[in-house]
């Protein structure tokens, strides 16, 4: 049995060397937050709208989608396409990088960062995990865990809002359950509170209120949800001391589910991103959309 007297030594020896961000990247993140985001956002929106006009062209005018991937896992050695130790499926076809939202979809100067693929059972989180919601556990949300291949990447530009995107292919029929789980979570966890939170101190304790709001449905792909999550910390006088917003677009095309996240409340932009990732997933879906 481990003893806490040994903990420092254990951590010193056992914690892995992580891939730290360079100091310049840390400073850039700090600087980016202090800048006004509106100018960047405006530029970003213009680009999306402009690009969106082309994207809205009839599907028939688009190039033929890539050859459909094998729908079932095949026992192959590790593909080496991600950090996963022993994937047993070929992620390059099950959910290729081309099915994710790309840097060119978001804005000039955006770069792809932290692109990774994960074999079954190796990615531990999902976009609607809400285990601090009292009702969440009882929902027994599990569909998201059964993906055949999961992939994510970030789209980043210093000083501008980052866009996070992820996607997965599921066994036949399961993707519908993932969307159904989004509905169950956002309904059961419409609003919840707890004492404490990041902004809470002994001198000024706060209560955190979290809300899920479904902003739009079925605006892209075969099914879609645009969900706004607001987290607000208030002190005992009701004064807001901390708040944050996360917009999440989740879209299903056949057995593929794509997600886009943005930490600013821009529903129109998020709809555009949702439509974009739907079109990208159509390019690799088993049937032509």
């Amino acid at each position: 049995m481990a003893d806490i007297d040994e903990l420092a030594g254990r951590l010193d020896h056992e914690l892995p060397d992580v891939r730290w961000d360079e100091p310049g990247a840390i400073r850039a993140r700090g600087r980016g937050r202090t800048r006004r985001q509106s100018a960047v956002l405006a530029a970003l929106s213009v680009l999306v709208i402009t690009a969106g006009i082309a994207w809205w062209a009839p599907r028939s005018s688009q190039p033929t989608p890539a050859a459909p991937p094998s729908p079932a896992p095949t026992a192959t050695p590790s593909t080496g396409s991600g950090p996963t130790t022993a994937p047993v499926v070929d992620g390059s076809t099950l959910f290729p990088v081309s099915a994710l939202l790309g840097a060119e979809d978001v804005g000039t100067g955006y770069q792809v960062t932290n692109q990774h693929g994960y074999g079954p059972g190796t990615y531990p989180a999902w976009a609607f995990g809400a285990d601090d919601c009292p009702e969440y556990d009882a929902l027994k949300v599990t569909a998201y865990k059964s993906y055949l291949w999961f992939r994510h990447q970030n789209l980043e530009l210093a000083g501008a809002p980052s866009v996070f995107t992820q996607g997965a292919r599921y066994p036949k029929g399961v993707a519908k359950n993932v969307l159904a789980d989004v509905d169950r979570v956002t309904a059961a966890c419409k609003r919840w509170e707890y004492a404490g939170g990041e902004a809470s101190t002994d001198e000024r304790p706060t209560v955190v209120t979290t809300t899920y709001t479904v902003v739009a449905k079925n605006f892209a792909g075969e099914e879609a949800r645009l969900v706004r999550k607001d987290v607000i910390s208030r002190d005992q006088d009701g004064k807001v001391v901390h708040q944050g917003t996360l917009m999440t677009a989740i879209v299903r095309v056949e057995d593929l589910v794509g997600v886009v996240e943005l930490e600013i409340p821009e529903p129109d932009l998020m709809r555009s991103f949702g439509q974009r990732i739907a079109d990208r997933m159509c390019g690799v879906a088993d049937q032509v959309c």
């Binding site: 060397d17 891939r19 991600g82 995990g129 809400a130 996070f164 404490g196 990041e198």
Partner: peptide
């Protein structure tokens, strides 16, 4: 803090990938 909840784990994996 619980403000970040499991979302923070999802975000952490998105930022840094899986552990080495």
């Amino acid at each position: 803090s619980r403000w970040r909840g499991r979302r923070s784990r999802a975000r952490a994996y998105a930022r840094h990938g899986a552990p080495p």
